[in-house]
Design a protein around this nucleic acid. Sequence first.
DNA 1: AAAAAAT
Length: 714
Amino acid sequence: MPKSKKPQGGRPARNFEPRYGANKTSFHDRHHGAPARDDARPERGGRADAGERRSAPAAGGYDRRPGSRSAGHRGYRPAEAEGGAPKQRWSAQERAGRDEARGIRNRAESGRREAPHHRDERPRRDDRGAQRPTGPGTYRDDRGGQRFGRDERPAGDQRRGFRDGDHRSGDSARRDDRGGQRFDRDDRPRRDDRGAAAQGRGSADRSPRGAGDRSFDADRARRSFDRDRTQRSFDGGRDERPRNGERSRPVTGGAYRTERVRPLTSDTRGRPAHNERPSRNNWNAAPSAPSRGAKFEQAEDVVHERLEAQAVQAVEVADVTFGDLGLGSNIVETLAGLGAAKPFAIQAASIPAVLEGRDVLARGRTGSGKTIAFGAPLVERVLQSQAGKRREFGRSPRAIILAPTRELALQIDRTIQPIARSVGLFTTQIYGGVPQGRQVGALKKGVDIVIGTPGRIEDLINQGKLDLSDCRIAVLDEADHMCELGFVEPVQRILRHTADGSQKLLFSATLDREVAALVDEFLVEPAVFEVAGEDQGSSTIEHRVLVIEHRDKADILTALVDREGKTLVFARTRAYADMLAEQFDDAGIPAVSLHGDLNQAKRTRNLERLTSGRVNVLVATDVAARGIHVDDIDLVVQADAPDEYKTYLHRSGRTGRAGRTGRVVTLITRQRQRRMTEMLDRAEIDAPFENARVNDDIIEEIAGRVPTAAQLTR
DNA sequence: AAAAAAT
């Protein structure tokens, strides 16, 4: 797409959502199907505000618009861009997503064991097919299901009004409004764009798969075509894979199709908590789905069968190489240099799918190699899409990777940059807390892959300094987290700036229905992967819970971190993190903290101090809970127990990475035992609860200090 | 409560 239409017409039009008519109408509609509680939401104010602004852009908009109004000044944006103001009223889609996410969280936190009728207050969920009498097919269905049964919603809900029928009607309506120049895309917006990216530019010859690549892209288009035609019948008809128990887990993500990497073992554990756990089981409902165009079905099924067979025999996995998966030799070499000689399971599963151009949802537990799983094929694909083209000065990015924290964005770049550079592509980090200058400078020179956090990325988009219109791949790392309340809206807006039909990759160790809002709007027939057998039995992390007296807490913590290896301590608040770091320091144990109250320089430096081993103790808030990889943290201490099982999983996942051993200890008081039990149950973690006082041997043991060694080190 | 933009 020509760059020229970007800053002016293109982006604002893209943002504008004519589907719902005038603001007044949507406001009315908002009330129509929405329960009263909606009115109490704080977001409402913001939304209404945004809507107002948008309705009178020329008048009221300026005082709030950032940046200069005269050309040549920093932050200048042409007035026409006003229509593309970032803040908008919530679309039905967004609200659906928000409710979705909120519902999941609420259930996770409070209602897991509640009776099913609990959900009846949430009609949208129910008719998602969860309780549909049609049987397991409802769950299995990867088309209607994946779209969350848009055909099934009760009439009258505005949300459904938009979703009813082919979702493309909504898409094209929006496109129509953007102006005539986009009509050329209307018939096959998503697929064709993607196909063009790979096909039109000589990708196939470069691909190790050769001509196969071309057919895969064609396959994408065909599949989507098939889906459009046959969605209805799939909705009701494909019951061929009834899985026991699926109907009893209505809440979970059964709507997604899952292509298993290997047979699931955790499935059989039969924990009661599974009922309400929005993860694992339903993601594994079926190995591979014969749901696409029949012609290509077979080829793809073969691929998955192969993976499955290999995975069953763990030994056979070792036979797959990155090259086999479709990555070029430069990339393979670089991966080897990064220490990834052979693909991990999640990588073996997702790399081919990404290379095909499919949207992918993937869950692999912490430390299982997700970054490479999306990063390596992403680079390959960007490369293919540019094959034969000159890398122009000032070209706009072809891929974007979003992460929830700056440290994670940095870390992802550290992994992906060498891969990209090995094939002549450039990456840049775009995150807040640092001056824009360098980032903007890099963008001006031309960057192929952008890695960053939502705030700054959106900021630069709005300043007209980042153009995502040519961005054909978008990755959300920690996708479920990115779909949480404060995150999802900017993420959605950013994704809307990417090219029509851009490929979407969602990765997380705890991927669940929380991503529904995004999946619904942005993904087309995603492949869904998880690595089977990722239960505690196969984990290398040992979990323990210490039940302590509150007055002992400080001393016990100090005793726990007074040890040889690297220790990561999690605190609930920034202030407490600071306090603990200081306390440890005062006790002669060098420690630093990591949290959002620190400036970015300190954040980076403190994390680096742990990585480099200059300190062995880092006290962090949940800013460090997800994704952060420090090689050899062998003890994670939760000074405050987390509230959410997902947080527990991510925090504890800072240790025991890539098969190494690690230990997690959580401190709780007696009063918290019950909550803790429930949370561990959701996390599917067995951990002994042990009473501990300040000088108990158990603390020495957990710290890894046998008494004698302790004496030696003192 | 934390995180994510800058002001």
